[in-house]
Nucleic acid binder design. Structure first.
Ligand code: MN
Ligand code: MN
Ligand code: ZN
Ligand code: ZN
Lengths: 150, 150
DNA sequence: CTTGCAAATTGGAATCATTCCAACTCATTC
DNA sequence: GAATGAGTTGGAATGATTCCAATTTGCAAG
């Protein structure tokens, strides 16, 4: 259960933080590692629980801080469904989210560029959008959980 | 500023409520009228303020109740952006939302059926979605506010 | 008409995710 | 090894929403 980053992921973290003038800390490493280890769109509370296993003294406030920092430097995305707790996703590829109403699980849905393009094209003149968010809600026949280690 | 429903809208309200075994009340009429009068995706608080002008004794709890009832019988949609207060929209046609980051205004964006179709088609086998939500975020050159009376 | 009932409304308390804050810790620089 | 500034921490504050118990209302039955 101890969270460790690969060379590559650590560098990624280091550089992304550096870009916005911030540093790698033990807490940030662990929180980031937790996100990469299990890509199930955990809530802040989920991340907190998991990270605490490696760092018992970690505070909830710090988890909030780390996640906000990561969002700020583009390392992770926030995922909201209705009014539920915000979830966090380290998948940077363009994708939509599918929320299974039965299980509460959130799945990534790949977004082909042509769909994104056609969506942009429905915006009337004068509307400039930097972000498009797409979320599905329904039921799914739970995919056999393929390994999510990183 | 007094909120009144047209024959047609009142019938619509009456029938939608009846379908789920509920009745028209003075409070529900006014809340519904407020939604139709200004389709700017008001928050609960917005609706509360506006409705109070016609019915000073109306309570916030009742506004929450009415809106929940309307969502339940399909008369209005909830609109969420990030973690902001939920907004309400009486436009039942399939549409996406554009949130102007400068003004906070929310605009309806028409959704052509073929786009909806292509979105459904990106779902892997086993995923059945009843609802798709699409929201844009960005800036817009504010359209001259065309009349929104009903 | 009264009376009785179920649904709806109301004001205020409770919840709960998130934000705020002031004190404390740590790494780095002088 | 003192000063500095970013980062962390625990707890308080916030704010939208939900919950609840006490009325009120609209009808229906007697
Ligand atoms: Mn989503
Ligand atoms: Mn939306
Ligand atoms: Zn994702
Ligand atoms: Zn709308």
């Amino acid at each position: 259960m101890i969270q460790r980053l690969t060379e590559h992921d650590r560098e990624n973290l280091q550089e992304s933080l550096a870009t916005s003038g911030q540093k790698v800390t033990a807490q940030r490493e662990i929180v980031f590692a937790v996100l990469l280890a299990k890509r199930d769109h955990p809530t802040v509370e989920d991340v907190f629980q998991r990270a605490r296993e490696s760092m018992p003294g970690l505070s909830l406030a710090t988890v909030y801080n780390c996640l906000e920092t990561f969002v700020g430097c583009g390392l992770v995305r926030q995922v909201n469904h209705e009014r539920e707790s915000t979830r966090y996703c380290p998948n940077l590829a363009p994708h939509a989210h599918f929320r299974d109403e039965a299980t509460g699980h959130v799945h990534d849905i790949e977004l082909p560029p042509e769909i994104i393009q056609s969506l942009r094209s429905i915006l009337p003149a004068g509307f400039n959008s930097e972000t498009i968010e797409i979320s599905f809600r329904g039921r799914s026949q739970e995919t056999p959980p393929r390994s999510t280690s990183n």
